[in-house]
Design a protein around this nucleic acid. Sequence first.
DNA 1: CTAAAAAGTGCATTATACCGCACATTAACT
DNA 2: AGTTAATGTGCGGTATAATGCACTTTTTAG
Lengths: 72, 72
Amino acid sequence: MHFDQLILQIKQRREELQITQETLAEIAEVGLRTLKQFESGKGNPTLQTITKISEVLGMELKLQIKPLNQIK
Amino acid sequence: MHFDQLILQIKQRREELQITQETLAEIAEVGLRTLKQFESGKGNPTLQTITKISEVLGMELKLQIKPLNQIK
DNA sequence: CTAAAAAGTGCATTATACCGCACATTAACT
DNA sequence: AGTTAATGTGCGGTATAATGCACTTTTTAG
């Protein structure tokens, strides 16, 4: 299972805000190791972890219905 | 931490599709216990679990930037 | 090129998600 | 009301996420 899109968005957003992993981890109150793990594509974070990180970055997780005829 | 919105959406979507927790769990290949836990508001699922469930329901997780002047 | 900062990784421990099972509670249908 | 389907929950084992620490690699700034 790839979360590439999510990872990329988090990374890009963090870089846009010019925050280091260390700072983000601190503010979001997640372990630095956890954030590193996630951003480097390993790991399978919990909803809570992703939510904490997203919130600090001014983002939120949304569920949307997939378009039916999605071109694979 | 509140995942109420996400939970509600999953539940509603499942009910719209008239699928039982049992069926959804089977198709999504997650434990029935896990799905029950999530839908009943306990638990903190992993990204993988949420993704599996969402996909079966024809939905996808998206990260979006929060509006700045959000009326709390 | 070089030094410092940032990001990635191996290892070990602790916390907890995942899961099945059995049973309880609630909802739906006749 | 009674029966059945569906959902919720306590218990307990297994898998793995979360975390810190120490170290390596990569990136960035001078």
